[in-house]
Design a protein around this nucleic acid. Structure first.
Lengths: 338, 338
DNA sequence: AAGGGTTGCTAAAACGATTTAGCAAACAGG
DNA sequence: CCTGTTTGCTAAATCGTTTTAGCAACCCTT
């Protein structure tokens, strides 16, 4: 039952053929390198027979190509990222690429460490949701012409490829939607972060509040708090701001904790409080009442990301792709006054 | 700005020291190999100065160690798997391992392909939720003494390490819980699968139904249907089985579609129909009423998986670990008759 | 029959680390 | 002073591919 693992040299000896020829044949360069059809067939048959599999470590070492794409997300257990991961994985697989992933948890040191690992391993390309503090590593990659696409957020005024949501417009529209439905005192619960997407969401909220002559109510909190703590902070915020007639949460995990908080306070949605979530979640559709949300076009994002990356991987395209996709406001009951 | 990437040979030349010595020093074998403290310091300083990073491809090729663990799940976008993935990733990182992942979508060919890829890449270890039809590949790994732990399901009567849930007992307890709460006509909606965990859940349901002298109502459906189709099938099933006073769903995604179906039919939970889900989900806690579920001990699973794998990776332990963990029934309102 | 082109193949170098085997100098013991 | 051991280091082999450079044989063409 002990199966021998053949090397090219083994095959060469057995077949009385040079390793070179076998390599050419296996890499589809038979005609190009003028290997006779006879030899080609002989080699292929034997390779099939002994089930020879080239050592990919050796191949990667020699060619410098790993056929691995590094995927750095904020948190693979967040449904937004895991759904995107699934789609990216699928498409990458179709082109022979595998995915090495890592979650940053929005911790710059962790992100830095991950980036360095990726770089050390000389992966073929990268799809990255950057945190603060890793701009140097990103630039290092860009400068060394390694295919790289950022997503979810990017660095302003930089020459990186990216695919992001139009966070500003989405947030603006969310507030508009609430206003159109009769809400006037609209709070915003968000993460205290300098990341571009969060800044844009905040800016969109603020712009809309100003445009409609409303008063802003903003609750910032740290990202790395436990759910229970986030829930507690939202409870406090809602208690302190009795005048609010609607809340807009800037991410799905904030909305989820917000719903917990609202339940705890015994508030009726949307009678006592309208609710709108940035980022959709299966729980929002099942909730009673259903929760209005801004859905990100995850499919399109995955499509664009992989398309851009593959273009850079195959033809080493240098053209800059900076794509901003529109979101979709899915109007459900939580934002419709009765 | 063009940064040279150094090789060991470059360093050796610059420092007038052999590559051997540098290698020894960088791998912490300075004393063992009797390198003088002077030389060690000189080398370390220079390495630091030019920020030398060894080429991990070369190292992996030479040592045969990749420091990568292959993680094969059913679907990374399912919260059970993505949460587990996050925990595994975290612990693996602590020990210097990275994760290469793949989703099978329960498609044997896809699983086979993934396994082959993993094997070809000579990863250091594997954590795998196997599908049907890849027993040969699994055995191939086991026979070649590559560290491997299965999870979520395993092959009966086999010499593999695994960490699974006590699916049978959990399913039995779920039915018992419903019976204890006054339900008598309990349906079971599950996936038509020969996979061990699904068989056990079904067996647990059947055993309990028999133990309590009840009538079984079983709805089987294919895994690879769209959500809408699954929902439709559940609607049909519920329509056809008016006598049911409770339904037990065998996975979280079935429960979610079940809740959609129940909403569509306008049934009140638990008055018209009690509901219990195998596998918890954040949506169940937020749902109104809250949905009773069997929670898998994801933390413990991740702990055990990585503990077993690391033991095999470091000391090449041969002892067989076959762990069955208990689940927790989280009693919520959907299973309490009013 | 000489020169040039094509055909069919291969030897050897290369990738960049780790590891084995061993050399020269210094030291110690009698 | 000679022998044997320890100290401190290194040359060269090695991992298994891919790729470069080129050789020998054959076929034309004139």
């Amino acid at each position: 039952m002990k199966k021998k693992t053949y090397t090219l040299a083994d095959l060469a000896k057995k077949l009385n053929v040079s390793a070179t020829s076998i390599s050419f044949i296996l890499n589809g360069k038979a005609e190009e390198k003028r290997i006779s059809a006879d030899l080609k067939e002989k080699v292929l048959r034997f390779v099939e027979e002994v089930n020879y599999k080239p050592n990919l470590l050796a191949r990667s070492f020699r060619t410098g190509k790993t056929n691995i794409i590094g995927l750095m997300v904020e948190d693979i257990s967040n449904s937004f990222f895991s759904k995107l991961a699934r789609l990216i994985e699928e498409k990458a697989n179709q082109y022979g690429y595998k995915i090495l992933y890592g979650s940053t948890g929005n911790v710059p040191d962790k992100a830095k460490e991950l980036m360095q690992m990726f770089i050390d391993r000389r992966l073929d390309g990268y799809i990255i949701a950057p945190t603060e503090g890793i701009r140097d590593e990103i630039d290092q990659l860009v400068n060394s012409h390694v295919p790289l696409v950022l997503f979810d957020r990017h660095y302003e005024s930089s020459q990186h490829d990216y695919v992001v949501l139009d966070n500003y417009q989405c947030a603006f529209n969310a507030v508009k939607h609430l206003v159109d439905n009769g809400f006037k005192e609209i709070g915003f619960v968000t993460i205290n972060s300098v990341q571009q997407q969060m800044q844009q969401r905040l800016a969109g909220y603020q712009a809309a509040i100003e445009a409609y002559g409303l008063k802003p109510y903003i609750k910032l909190m740290a990202y790395n708090l436990e759910d229970a703590k986030k829930c507690k902070l939202i409870v406090d915020f809602l208690k302190k701001s009795k005048q609010l007639d609607a809340v807009f949460f800037s991410t799905n995990y904030l909305s989820i904790n917000g719903l917990r908080a609202i339940k705890e306070l015994g508030l009726a949605i949307p009678k006592d409080l309208g609710v709108l979530s940035f980022d959709d979640h299966v729980a929002f559709e099942l909730h009673n009442p259903t929760i209005t949300a801004i859905a990100q076009p995850i499919d399109q994002m995955a499509d664009q990301l992989i398309k851009i990356l593959l273009a850079k991987l195959s033809v080493n395209e240098e053209h800059l792709h900076q794509i901003t996709l529109p979101g979709t406001l899915i109007s459900r009951n939580s934002s419709l006054k009765q």
